[in-house]
Every structure is written in structure tokens, then in C-alpha cells.
Design a binder for these strands. Structure first.
Length: 892
DNA sequence: TTATTGCATGGCT
DNA sequence: AAGCCATGCAATA
């Protein structure tokens, strides 16, 4: 059975279903999901009827009802045909025996993300079957971490941008209705399909989190049972609205799972994992994952935390610790997002592209013996970092994570810093407007020891079960030139853990994003072989070097009130920018991948003076590809198979569906199967992507006010390509809600296209912004052309002479080339391809043409103007003006 | 005079 | 419009 379907006498293929025998006409295109996956990697070809049955999950019911192997789901009792390949994706095994149908498994999965260790088929299906879940309107692109933890390892491994985006666009998470589901049921066994884990340490593989989970919940599954919880436990059970899961782990081969509450406004899970990591050279590096999906602040009372009144002693805290993390999590959801310890989507993508989540957990399992709960972080204000020595604490954070204090004098609080040194701060408050203002007093020595300044971020975490508070920090990158590189690292850089401490010494468990920096220290390797144990030590060998985007510190260190106000403003502006950038990344990613649905052209809507493509039908997500030009000048694009992750060379004008696989490689029959080898080695492909990556790095957009560097979305291979280069990676900053758009706003909307204030975008810039702008431009030009054709016969005749409106007609001042034969965007991209002989990140666009021609030089740096310019030949060269003009007309 | 403390103010979300 | 919080500032040491 090497081929999905045998060939019938009539030339057509016979349905793979042995009970069917129906002939599949030759002209029938292969169904993407028509059948199950064969061992060869191919998809069993079924006739329409069988294919439908398979897709509807009724295949075995239809054809195998009288065959042995049926069992009942342990949870719902539904019949499951075990042992049949056709049903393999529809159930999972339970450790405790028995099976669970996919639906029930999914529910469990929603609450126990470590079950991503389960069948990848399950996960795959899980991801792809989320249409049943509501998608929040208005925020189609959900939080960066949405679903990431629940992806199958292989999904992570092949996480390309589209995978991530697809998930974000396609589904949200189940909201576990009760936490008890976690304890029973058992961990799903590791599927035989998932070869990646065959090499995993036995202690990990064999370990079951069940015990831990039971332990966790037996110990006090909620704060309600905690002694300290009586202080202020008026919070409803968060599980009723919880959707997130926090992962905790022990080195003794177990994982703790803790659902984290998500506010009702938030649909994404809050997933936290913090893990010190010890590499082979003995250094220890923490890791963490956190959802950075900002939840809405709720108005419910804050849950009280674990510290009893007036107690800051670690030993005592231990006694109060049972089940606390859950309460913590509940609290966190009510904190302002800006205080969330976080990792950005981009970082996660980088991480996920390189190291599947499971690996991270495993690494965590192997090397940690503590559970780390990131609590919150705060960017230091000038006041915080000043000599007064008072660190203003976000009220909700203080009330949620620090001991309750009833007197303004507060109590001493012991916090361990990155070096293991204990600090004692006075945690107190001031009455303020019928409220309280919480501060940590006496932080100056600590701040100075950490060499922190305004703009840097301090982080607070907790080590369980000790309950030890740990304080880390993250330097604002702009200080990098001012400081010793050694000290510029985050507080979690822990090359020499204190001796005699059996526990992992937690340094910065929140603010640091180890993967980001570790990336620079990772040697390039095959991202597919993620289970290769030999590659683990490479993971975190070097210290973490925060790569925060440059921040204009001067704006944040005011000395006078006036300046202070400026400082305050600038901090907020900075947050805006940070958020903008984060949003921008997402937006760019989306723009890059979204395209009009088939047989439909986008409309244009103008929002606050900026136009957006509007699709009557849902836009299509396309697969991200990379364009290359070989030495012979031939243009290709490269795409990665969704299944086997191999890279295939395709014609340049090919438009790929989001989930594209080798079987759909009709352009190269020899490589139309996952079993066929890659034309180029991963290294070679990576090298090409590297070219692109470098190029896009050079073309990064910077926000004027703080010079935050923005990276385009990196996908797996791009990650691979830049690994080991030792280059600093940009890091997104904490974000907050998006502010109103105002003059001077540098948010994603207002900076589109890149304004003249910031770094100029070159004509050859292939950043997402530019590509999108070009694409919009082309779209609008085409629309304009169409309009003109309809209204003016004379114009129509001209159009007939030049079937495609040359950009030179619209922008004669921008130096179009007479040889231009296609839309400007295509030309622009092609020019770069031709001139650079390198891969160009191709914004998916079905109008792309393979013809390499000189592009019209669209000025990407013009200042957006909102006034309508009636003249399409405005000498401003402002594409935006043109677009705006066109858009405005279109909107009419 | 300087540092510290406690509270008030006002910008901002 | 309420509340947060960055910071000013007067009182005090």
C-alpha cells in the first residue's frame, strides 16, 4: 500500500476504502482532508462519499461498524473505533486505560495543555476544528499566545507565521467549566505517531502529571481552603470563567497544571511557565512562557494572596502556600496588562519555531525543581528609580500578590534578587483619594545594585512551594551602551547559582525572556529534529541578553515636575508605542497573509483617514512563502509543507492555500509527496531565508519617539537562519490598551505608511508595511482603473492600450521605468529579487507576476495626509494621498 | 541645608 | 467619571 489509491482499469483511482471500490475520476483534485494519513505520509485518497464520511467522523461507523476494535469513550461513552487508522485522529489513549474521544480530549486539553504530548493528530485536528468556537469580533487576532500551548509539538516545530496566525484567527479556547476535570481522567498517552518524543528522557516520558495534578488539588485546589484565603476570599471560583492554564513542573518528571482564570473579556488562555534551566556548562537559565493576551480588568474584588497579615517570613509562607498559584492566577487576570509578566508573540514565534513547546516543558522538567509563578512587573518611573527609594507598586498587583496590610506602616517584605541576595523592603501604603497607594520603601540599594534606571523593568515572581518572592529586572535596551554588558543582562542571567541551594535559584523569572536572548546563542540546526537531545544544551548556553528595543531614556528620567510630567507622558507614549509595535507586528502578519477571497476584490474602508482593505467574504489566509532568485535569474518561491515541513520550490506566481502540503505540489511531481527529499538542504534554505531576514532586519521600522525596532514576523526557518549569528533580537515591550489616535500618535494606524519622521523605507524595502502599502496601492490603482474605464471611454481606450495601468501614469514623478509591465508592487518586489539575488519575503498576493521588471519608485516615507487630494498625479508622490483619495472616493 | 516622610495633585486611562 | 499612579511638595528630622 504505497499509494493511497490503486489505479482502476479505467484509468481512475479506486477509493482507498476497501469497502467502497468506487473509482475516483482522474480529474478529481486530491482532497486535502479526504482521508487519513498513510505511513508514507500521503493522504489516503477516498471517493467523495467516503471522504465526506471521514471528514464527518462517521467513516468507521459507516464501514467498520461490525468490525472489532470498538470501545467507548471513557468520558462520554461515545463509540470509538480503536486501532483503525481511519479513526486514529478521533481519539486518544488514557494513561489509566481506555480511550477518550477527541471531543472529550479536547476539553481536557483545554485545561491541561501538557497534553499536547498527546497525539499530534489530535492536536492537529484540534487546531483545525475550532470553528465551533466563538471568535470574538473586533479582535480577530487574539493574544500572542493564544493556543500556542495547545498546539501539538509538531505544530510548533513547523510553526510558521501562518500557523500561528491561522490559529489566532480561527479559534479561541474552550473555557473549562470546572477545575476538577483536571485531576481525573489521566494524561493522554503519547501517541505512537509522535516520533519526536521517542528520544525524550524516559523519566519524563514515563512520568505522569496525574499524580502531581492530584497532589496539587488534593492540597488545596483553591485558595478558598487556604488559611490565608480567609482573609479576602470573596472571589467567585475563577474556574467558572477560566480558560487559561498555567503549567508548572517538577523535575521529578511531572507537570503541574493549573488553570488560570481569564477575565470574561479575554478569550485566550493565560499560560505561564517559568523555568530555570541548566545547561551543560552548568549555567542556569530561566525560561518562561506567558500569555500576553491582555485581559480586561475586572471590577471584582481582588483575591487575597498567600501572605498572612504581617508575615513576610519565607518559612511561614511555605505553610500558607497550598493551592495558591491558582489564586495568583486569578489575581493576575485582574491586573492591568501592562504589569503582566510577558513574552511577546514575536518572541514566542521565534521560540516556537525553533523549539516546540513540549521541549521547553521537558527542559523545564529536567532542570527545575521549583515551580515559579511570575507575578507582575513594573517599569520603573523616574520616581521609582530616584533616590527617594520608593517604588510605587501597582495597586492591584500589591493587593493581589503581596501581603495584606491594614496599616499604612505596612510590613517588611523579603525579596530575593537575581544574585540570590535577600532584600527587605518596607511594603506599605499611603492613603490616597479614598484609596491606597502602595509602595516598596528602601529599594534604592537594590535598584542601585541592579543598576536600574527609569525605564527598566523590575519583575516579581514567586517560587513555590517555598513561596519565596524573587525580584528580577529587565533593562531597557537603550542603556546597553551605557552599561557594562554584563550588567545589561536581565536579572535572570544566572551563570553561577548560589551554592548550597538545592532549589533552583530564581532570578528574573518574569521580565526576562530567555529564549529571545538564547536565540543568539543557539547554533543553527535542523528545526525538525527538535527531539534530538544533543541539541538541548545548545539551547541556553549563553546568558540572556535582553534585546529590548532602544528606548529613549532621556524621556523617562525627568528631574523637574515639568519634565516629570513629560516623563510620565513619555512612558505612556512609550507604552503606546510598544503596544503599537506589538500590534503592528500582528497587523503586519495579518496583512501579509490576508488576501481577498477568490473571485472577490477587496473594498476599501477609511478609518481615521487610513484605508483598509475590506472583504465582503472572509479573507483568505495564504501560506507564507519566500521568493528566491537563482543565479540564472529564475524566480521561485519556497513553501513549507504543512505536514512534513519540507521546503518545496514552486513557481513564483503560485498562490498557496494556507495549509499546503507536498501532495499539492503539482508543479514538481517528483516532490509531490512528503516522502520525497527536499531539493535543498535545510541549511541552504535557511541561508536563503537568512538573506531575507537580514534584509528585513535592515528594513525594520522604527518608531520615532523611542526607536523601538520592529521585527517582522519570523518563521521557523528564518529563526533557524539567524540563530547563531549572535545578533540581538528585537523585543517587544510590555503593552497596554491601545490609546486613542491623536496627533503624534505612533500607533500602528498612525504610522501607516511609515511616516517621514521615522527611518526612511527604501524603495526596495520588503518589510510588511511596505509590501502592504504597495499592495494596497496596487489594489486601489486597479480599482481606479476600473472606475475610469467604466466612466470614460477615452480613458478606457487608453487602458486598452495599456492593459495594466502602469504606475507611471499615476505617479509619473517617481521614475517609473518604461519597461514596467505590471503593477507597481510586483515590480517592486521583483526588482529586489532581481537586484539582490536573494530571497524576498513575498507578501502573498495572487496578482504577483513572475516578470522581473523595474518597479515604480513608490515613496514609502511620505507623511500620510488625510486631506483628499483630487489629483491622482499629485506631485507629492504620496501614495497614501493617492490611496486616500481613491479610498475616499471608493467609500462614497 | 539636606534627606526623609506623608500626603496632595493632576494627568491619564 | 472613577480611579490609578507619577510626582510635587510641605512638614519634619
Amino acid at each position: 500500500m504505497s499509494s493511497p489509491a490503486s489505479v482502476s482499469l479505467s484509468g481512475g483511482k479506486i477509493c482507498f476504502n476497501s469497502h467502497c471500490k468506487e473509482v475516483i475520476p482522474d480529474h478529481t483534485p486530491p482532497r486535502k482532508k479526504g482521508g487519513w494519513r498513510l505511513r508514507s505520509g500521503e493522504i489516503a485518497e477516498l471517493c467523495d462519499r467516503c471522504s465526506c464520511a471521514f471528514e464527518q467522523g462517521s467513516f468507521c461507523e459507516t464501514f467498520h461498524s461490525d468490525v472489532a476494535g470498538w470501545r467507548n469513550c471513557e468520558a462520554c461513552g461515545k463509540r470509538v473505533h480503536c486501532g483503525c487508522v481511519a479513526s486514529a485522529p478521533t481519539y486518544v489513549f488514557l494513561d489509566v486505560g481506555g480511550v477518550e474521544c477527541i471531543a472529550c480530549a479536547r476539553k481536557s486539553l483545554a485545561m491541561a495543555p501538557n497534553q499536547m504530548l498527546s497525539s499530534p493528530m489530535l492536536m492537529h485536528q484540534h487546531v483545525s476544528e475550532r470553528r465551533d468556537l466563538p471568535v470574538k469580533s473586533g479582535r480577530p487576532i487574539t493574544g500572542p499566545f493564544s493556543g500556542q500551548w495547545r498546539q501539538a509539538p509538531h505544530m510548533w516545530n513547523m510553526t510558521s507565521l501562518q500557523s500561528d496566525l491561522q490559529q489566532r484567527l480561527s479559534y479561541e479556547f474552550d473555557r473549562p467549566s470546572n477545575i476538577e476535570k483536571l485531576a481525573p481522567g489521566g494524561r493522554h498517552s503519547i501517541s505512537a505517531h509522535e516520533k519526536k518524543f521517542e528520544e525524550l528522557p524516559e523519566r519524563i516520558i514515563s512520568g505522569s502529571h496525574n499524580n502531581i495534578a492530584r497532589d496539587r488539588y488534593a492540597h488545596g485546589n483553591t485558595g478558598e481552603n487556604d488559611p490565608d484565603s480567609t482573609r479576602k476570599s470573596v472571589i467567585p471560583d475563577p474556574c467558572s470563567t477560566s480558560s487559561g492554564v498555567k503549567i508548572e513542573a517538577k523535575a521529578n518528571s511531572s507537570i503541574k497544571l493549573q488553570p488560570l482564570p481569564i477575565s470574561k473579556e479575554d478569550s485566550s488562555p493565560l499560560i505561564g511557565l517559568a523555568a530555570p534551566f541548566s545547561s551543560t556548562n552548568g549555567s542556569r537559565e530561566p525560561m518562561k512562557f506567558l500569555s500576553n493576551q491582555p485581559p480586561q480588568l475586572t471590577t471584582s474584588p481582588l483575591p487575597k494572596q498567600f501572605y498572612p497579615e504581617g508575615i513576610a517570613d519565607t518559612e511561614l509562607q511555605i505553610q500558607m502556600r497550598n493551592g495558591r498559584a491558582r489564586v495568583d492566577a486569578r489575581s493576575r487576570t485582574q491586573l492591568l496588562p501592562r504589569y503582566w509578566p510577558r513574552i511577546t508573540d514575536q518572541e514566542l514565534q521565534q521560540i516556537s519555531g525553533e523549539y516546540p513547546s513540549t521541549l521547553l516543558i521537558i527542559i523545564y522538567l529536567v532542570y527545575t525543581n521549583s515551580v515559579i509563578t511570575p507575578l507582575f512587573e513594573k517599569m520603573l518611573s523616574a520616581s521609582d528609580a530616584g533616590r527617594i527609594g520608593r517604588l510605587v507598586l501597582p495597586k492591584k498587583c500589591a493587593e493581589a500578590y503581596f501581603p495584606t496590610i491594614s496599616q499604612p506602616e505596612g510590613l517588611p517584605l523579603k525579596v530575593q534578587d537575581a544574585s540570590g541576595k535577600d532584600w527587605v523592603f518596607q511594603f506599605r501604603f499611603w492613603p490616597n483619594n479614598n484609596s491606597r497607594m502602595y509602595v516598596l520603601e528602601g529599594v534604592t540599594p537594590c535598584i542601585q545594585a541592579m543598576q536600574l534606571q527609569a525605564g527598566d523593568t523590575v519583575t516579581f515572581s514567586r517560587i513555590d512551594p517555598e513561596g519565596k518572592l524573587v525580584m528580577g529586572f529587565r533593562k531597557a535596551s537603550s542603556s546597553s551602551t551605557e552599561q557594562d554588558p554584563q550588567t545589561h543582562k536581565s536579572g535572570s542571567d544566572f551563570s553561577t547559582p548560589p551554592e548550597g541551594n538545592d532549589k533552583i535559584v530564581v532570578t528574573d523569572l518574569i521580565g526576562n525572556v530567555p529564549f529571545r536572548a538564547s536565540k543568539a546563542s543557539i547554533e543553527p540546526r535542523d528545526p525538525i529534529n527538535v527531539a534530538d537531545r544533543s541539541s538541548w544544551p545548545k539551547f541556553t548556553k549563553a546568558g540572556f541578553i535582553p534585546q529590548d528595543g532602544p528606548v529613549t531614556r532621556s524621556l523617562q528620567v525627568p528631574s523637574k515636575r515639568k519634565a516629570s510630567t513629560l516623563g510620565s507622558k513619555s512612558k505612556r507614549l512609550r507604552i503606546e508605542n510598544e503596544e503599537s509595535m506589538e500590534l503592528k507586528l500582528t497587523w503586519e502578519e495579518a496583512q501579509e497573509l490576508l488576501r481577498p477571497p477568490p473571485n472577490s476584490s477587496p473594498g476599501i474602508v477609511v478609518i481615521e483617514g487610513h484605508e483598509f482593505e475590506e472583504y465582503e467574504e472572509a479573507p483568505v489566509l495564504g501560506k507564507r512563502t519566500y521568493f528566491t532568485t537563482n543565479p540564472a535569474g529564475e524566480n521561485y518561491q519556497w513553501a513549507q509543507c504543512e505536514d512534513c515541513l519540507k521546503w518545496r520550490k514552486l513557481p513564483i506566481d503560485t498562490l498557496l492555500p494556507f495549509k499546503w502540503t507536498c501532495t499539492e505540489n503539482v508543479w514538481d511531481p517528483e516532490r509531490s509527496s512528503c516522502s520525497s527529499e527536499q531539493e535543498l538542504s535545510l541549511e541552504q534554505v535557511a541561508a536563503m531565508i537568512s538573506c531575507k531576514t537580514d534584509a528585513s532586519k535592515r528594513a525594520k521600522v522604527k518608531v520615532e519617539s523611542n526607536n523601538i525596532e520592529v521585527s517582522d514576523g519570523l518563521d521557523t526557518l528564518a529563526n533557524l537562519a539567524i540563530l547563531g549569528e549572535g545578533k540581538n533580537l528585537p523585543m517587544s515591550q510590555p503593552t497596554t490598551r491601545h490609546p486613542r489616535h491623536r496627533p503624534g500618535c505612533t500607533c500602528i494606524v498612525c504610522i501607516q505608511p511609515p511616516s517621514g519622521k521615522g527611518p526612511k523605507h527604501k524603495q526596495t524595502c520588503t518589510c510588511n508595511v511596505c509590501l502592504t502599502v504597495k499592495r494596497r496601492f496596487r489594489t486601489l490603482m486597479l480599482r481606479r482603473e476600473k472606475r475610469q474605464s467604466e466612466k470614460e471611454s477615452e480613458t478606457a481606450r487608453k487602458q486598452q492600450q495599456k492593459p495594466m495601468l502602469s504606475s507611471s501614469e499615476v505617479l509619473p514623478q517617481v521614475g517609473s521605468d518604461p519597461s514596467s509591465t505590471g503593477p507597481g508592487d510586483d515590480n517592486a518586489s521583483q526588482k529586489e529579487i532581481a537586484s539582490n539575488d536573494a530571497i524576498v519575503d513575498a507578501a502573498p498576493d495572487h496578482r504577483r507576476t513572475p516578470t522581473a521588471v523595474k518597479p515604480p519608485q513608490i515613496d514609502l516615507n511620505i507623511q500620510p495626509e488625510r486631506e483628499e487630494d483630487p489629483s491622482p498625479k499629485s506631485d507629492t508622490g504620496s501614495m497614501m494621498r493617492l490611496i486616500g483619495d481613491s479610498a475616499t472616493r471608493t467609500a462614497r
